[in-house]
Nucleic acid binder design. Structure first.
Length: 650
RNA sequence: GCCGUUGUAGCUCAGCUGGUAGAGCGGCGCACUCGUAAUGCGCAGGUCAAGGGUUCGAGUCCCUUCAACGGCUCCA
């Protein structure tokens, strides 16, 4: 029987295709072909048949979780409980306590719930499917306000359980196992016995707003992970442990790259000497690349008068992310959240002809944004950031070529770092945000969005499109990456700005001798130092390629007798521009090697009697491979060649 | 900002039901002079995140603040 059957009796479920991908779905499951997903559709991959079973296991485990919770908290109100990447969650509203505080789950309760879940699973209760009318659904869920809200949305046929619009009017259906019936479109396993009792684990409790809207009540979300069997679960848990070791916050401390200090303030990183080297290498790379690509370097102050940000639109549209003003002699000054207004002023500093275009102004500018305290995350989300910023002013005819040249920059950089796992995302406006989140000019929005789409399509660049994620001044292409612990971030960004140039009266004289307004492309292919280095630490697991490594060579004398040769070698290398240090401590050689390995120094030079006598080095690479009896000159040549082409291999 | 958890030496962590702090690593000193991932011995180091409260007595209990972590919201 298919899902459109009018038979509303309980029956075994038929297979139903699911929209959600269980591996990559984000925190909130996305939708296919939804006109306005509020969720990142880049998380969308085609559902793979081999994952159907896993999807069902996770989805069904979520239902079992809800049953267990309702048994322990009969008054709990249930919201939604979808399968997600690596597992599932379910949202609950436990009401308020006597003091009016939101009631929450305790960690001990989680254990109790998990125990009960295993009992339910052991009961081998069948999952029974039925289709119901809206009226019937309302009766079944009469005391479940969140479900009633979902039913209303389903009935209107325009809203699904995540608050997103849907194209077709859905059928209302429920699934029931044991004593628990849930509004659900499935699919599920046949009975709870198909959920491996040692394949799932409740992971954490977290607050989550109903339908992801911070104006809605906060629900209690229980996250769980679920797999086909115990082995897969253990592998997953082991993977989480491994990911922790790559976490840039841990490696950043261990490798002495950056730190935070309570007295300095949250989200304000201090770069240690090793971090300083990473920064200068990235800036060197950017400067070389941008010189070749026809950019000009500029420099602008960290703050400006209020007037500038009023004109730029930052104060009307972006004030929430800006530090409050400081007032001096009756004038308000703001610390800059972006560099653009300054670059616009530089563009406007002299008359421009169409012959001058494109004008490409680049700057590693330090910006400050007041991110809410709970949003901070190591280096990936900070309050002071140095952006690999540039603004390209061009005519409409030049747009596509310039835009693609910027995409070319991304590709060149990603090749240097061997970044393979990323997704390009086109963020467009939504009409409901015009005049609020977005500059109010729908015609130009549609026009520039079409331009970007055309450029990407012509260039054959794959991308996903996400409405309602644009910058306030125009559409953008973001490059999405994932941190070690699986959190998604925008690394680089490439934005079209049609709104601000006119506000700054930016013009050029066209062929006909008339004034025309240039388009502006904002771009930051190397992101900010903070996010880029956070990403690179995890990407390389701290083992940076030679050119980027804070310390490239460590000279290790075998005994103190070889100290002077070691020191001399290190000095010689430094004079050739190599970052080399000699370890002259009183440790034994083995300990020195271990120290260098732990600091992930690419090259170790072990020197003893033999090397002193022959004026050679014994090279030990970080990967353990060795090259003995290498003449110094030969080693230097090898080293410099690797550094010069930013080689990824040691 | 919101919900939850956590906060003991530079790092990782002990410290039972309240009786004024302990280990390993790291640091420093001495000895060892060694051929590719930890030599041995000794020493120093903490107003137990900060402030307030309960108590004869608080690292341990309560409150407030701060910070970090897991999420939500938001984002380079």
């Amino acid at each position: 029987m298919d899902r459109h059957s009018t038979d509303r009796q309980w029956r075994a479920p038929s297979f139903r295709p699911c929209l959600l991908d269980s591996r990559l779905a984000g925190r909130r499951p996305p939708l296919l072909k939804s006109p306005i997903p509020k969720v990142p559709t880049m998380s969308l991959l085609k559902n793979r048949p081999e994952d159907e079973q896993l999807y069902k296991i996770r989805h069904s485990t979520a239902h079992v979780l809800a049953q267990a919770v309702l048994e322990i908290h009969p008054d709990a109100k249930i919201a939604i409980g979808p399968p997600i990447d690596q597992g599932f969650y379910y949202d609950f509203d436990l009401g308020k306590d006597e003091q009016g505080k939101i009631r929450t789950f305790t960690p001990e309760e989680l254990e109790q719930i998990e125990k009960r879940m295993r009992q339910i699973v052991a009961g081998k209760h069948p999952f029974l499917y039925r289709e119901v009318s809206a009226e019937e659904a309302r009766q079944i869920f009469a005391d479940q306000p969140y479900k009633l809200e979902l039913i209303a949305g389903l009935e209107r046929g325009a809203i699904d359980e995540y608050g997103n619009e849907t194209a077709t009017k859905p059928v209302i259906s429920t699934y029931r196992q044991d004593s628990f019936e849930d509004l659900c479109r499935g699919p599920h396993v046949e009975h709870t016995g198909q959920i491996p009792p040692d394949g799932f684990k409740l992971m954490s409790v977290a607050g989550a707003y109903w339908r992801g809207d911070e104006n809605n009540p906060m629900l209690q979300r229980i996250y769980g992970t679920a797999w086909r069997n115990k082995k897969e679960l253990n592998e997953h848990l082991a993977l989480l442990e491994e990911a922790k070791k790559r976490d840039h916050r841990k490696l950043g401390r261990d490798l002495e790259i950056f730190m935070f200090d309570e007295e300095v303030g949250p989200g304000l990183p201090l770069w240690l000497p090793n971090g300083g080297i990473l920064i200068s290498e990235l800036e060197k790379l950017a400067a070389e690349t941008e010189l070749r690509a026809g950019y000009q370097r500029v420099k602008s102050p960290h703050l400006s008068k209020q007037d500038l940000f009023l004109r730029s639109g930052h104060l009307p549209y972006y004030a929430e992310s800006m530090y409050p003003p400081m007032e001096l002699e009756g004038v308000k000054y703001y610390v800059k959240p972006m560099n653009c207004p300054f670059h616009h002023k530089i563009y406007a500093s002299k008359p421009r002809s169409y012959r001058d275009l494109p004008v490409r102004l680049a700057e590693y500018g330090t910006c400050y944004r007041y991110e809410k305290s709970g949003e901070l995350f190591g280096l990936m989300r900070v309050r002071s950031m140095q952006m690999n910023d540039a603004h390209i002013y061009c005519s409409e005819e030049q747009f596509e070529q310039e835009f693609m040249a910027v995409i070319g920059l991304y590709r060149a950089y990603f090749e240097i770092f061997a970044v393979e796992k990323f997704v390009m995302r086109l963020s467009t406006h939504h009409p409901r945000g015009l005049g609020k989140k977005y500059v109010d000019n729908e015609r130009l929005w549609l026009q520039t969005e079409a331009m970007v789409r055309r450029a990407m399509d012509n260039g054959g660049i794959p991308y996903v499109e996400v409405p309602d994620e644009a910058a306030f001044y125009g559409p953008k292409i973001d490059v999405q990456i994932w941190s070690a612990i699986g959190r998604e971030f925008t690394l680089a960004t490439n934005q079209v700005d049609f709104a601000v140039p006119p506000r700054f009266n930016l013009v050029y004289t066209n062929r006909d001798g008339k004034e025309a307004t240039p388009l502006c492309i904002h771009r930051a292919p190397l992101s900010t130092h903070e996010r880029m280095i956070g990403f690179l630490i995890e990407h390389f697991a701290g083992a940076f390629p030679l050119w980027l490594a804070p310390q490239q060579v460590r000279v290790i004398p075998i005994t103190a007798e070889h100290n002077s040769y070691a020191a001399h070698l290190a000095q010689q290398l430094r004079e050739q521009g190599v970052r080399a240090e000699a370890d002259l401590s009183s440790e034994r050689m083995n300990a020195k090697i271990r120290d260098a390995q732990l600091m992930k120094v690419p090259y170790m030079l072990v020197v003893g009697d033999q090397e002193v006598a022959n004026q050679t080095v014994a090279l030990r690479k970080r990967d353990g491979s060795r090259l003995n009896d290498l003449p110094v000159a030969q080693f230097v040549a090898l080293l410099q060649a690797k550094i010069a082409d930013r080689s990824l291999t040691l």
